[in-house]
Amino acid sequence: MTAEVDVSPAIEDLLGRHGDSAAEAILEDVLKRAFVRRTALVSSFGTEAAALLHMVAAIEPATPVLFVDTGRLFGETLRYRDRLVERLGLTDVRSLKPEPRIAAEDQDLMLFSRDADRCCYLRKVLPLRKALEGFDCWINGRKGHHGGGRAQMPVAEADGFLVKITPLARWGADDVDAYYETHDLPRHPLWEDGFPSVGCLPCTVRASAEDGFRAGRWAGAQKTECGIHLPVAEVLRRAGGC
């Protein structure tokens, strides 16, 4: 789709046909009918990532998988990525590197503590925005049980001139657990070590289930999202411009 194309008809069509559809049916429609060879899956290879990766691999294993490698990830995450890629037979996994200017702005690797929004913008948001150029649609793994603004997500929405698909929007933690068990999927190594959600190493701590799924992300900071799923204007405001 180009900047002149209005994505709202495609979104209305998807929402109209998938009000109660299972995640697999939504993915089948997107990958095999609505956006054939024009869709990317964005995955963090985090603690719940294997479920969606498994579904996509079963439908179309050649789907491009965009992995934002911030340069500050846990080694466990990188090894888990490699294990899942081999196990699921994913054939097009693309690692996205931080914006080159990060070298000048984060020479001491402490930008995360001075300005977490700026750090996320240069290491995550901008690299993904550039990687999504050329696609019409992208799939993400957010789930309703994550809480906060994720509790009422639609399965399809506009992201600028792209269509963003959230097939697991209505999933709870029990759904995730059941899928892993049914398909014998390996858990992220840090899952059983008290990390329900895993991001960059400096910004992720252990958290209990009672605290909330994402309580260990940017703990103590007034921040709950890296910016990938926020409106562009809000991201730029928080990150201090381009």
Rank of each mutant, 00 (worst) to 15 (best):
V85W: 06
D177A: 15
E234R: 05
L14W: 10
K32Q: 15
V42K: 03
R129H: 15
A156M: 06
F135L: 04
R214Y: 10
A131D: 11
C226F: 03
D193I: 04
V235M: 07
Y179N: 04
P202F: 00
R129P: 00
V235P: 01
R129E: 15
A103W: 11
D177E: 13
R238I: 01
R83I: 02
L201F: 10
I139N: 07
L84A: 08
E24C: 01
A158R: 14
L66S: 01
A178R: 15
G227Y: 06
L52R: 08
E210F: 00
A131S: 08
R33E: 10
L53S: 08
R118E: 09
G212H: 11
R87H: 06
G16P: 14
A209G: 13
D108H: 07
E181I: 04
V7C: 03
A3M: 07
K97M: 13
E192V: 09
G160H: 09
E192C: 02
C119W: 04
G16T: 09
R94E: 10
N140V: 10
P189Q: 08
L90S: 06
V125S: 09
R187D: 13
L31R: 12
S95G: 11
G240I: 11
L185G: 10
N140L: 00
A10G: 00
L53K: 12
C119I: 06
R217D: 10
D115Q: 08
V7K: 15
Q222K: 15
V176F: 04
D184E: 14
W138I: 08
T166A: 11
K32D: 14
G144H: 02
R38W: 00
E99C: 09
L111P: 13
F112H: 15
P100M: 04
S197F: 04
D193Y: 00
E133C: 01
E181G: 14
E48D: 15
G216C: 09
A10N: 10
R101Y: 00
A58D: 14
V42E: 07
Q107M: 00
S43R: 02
A49T: 05
S21H: 03
R217N: 01
A116W: 03
D159E: 12
V56Q: 01
R94A: 13
G141T: 09
H188N: 02
V235G: 12
R170F: 02
R150G: 05
E157K: 04
G46K: 08
D174W: 05
Y121T: 04
S113G: 01
L15T: 01
P231I: 02
I139P: 04
V36I: 13
T39V: 10
D136A: 15
Y179Q: 10
S43W: 01
C200A: 07
P61H: 13
Q107T: 12
A51W: 04
V5H: 15
Q222L: 03
R17S: 06
C137R: 04
L52G: 10
P186M: 06
Y180G: 01
D175F: 14
E28N: 13
A209Q: 14
W218V: 01
A158D: 02
V125Q: 04
A151V: 08
T77L: 03
A103F: 13
G147A: 05
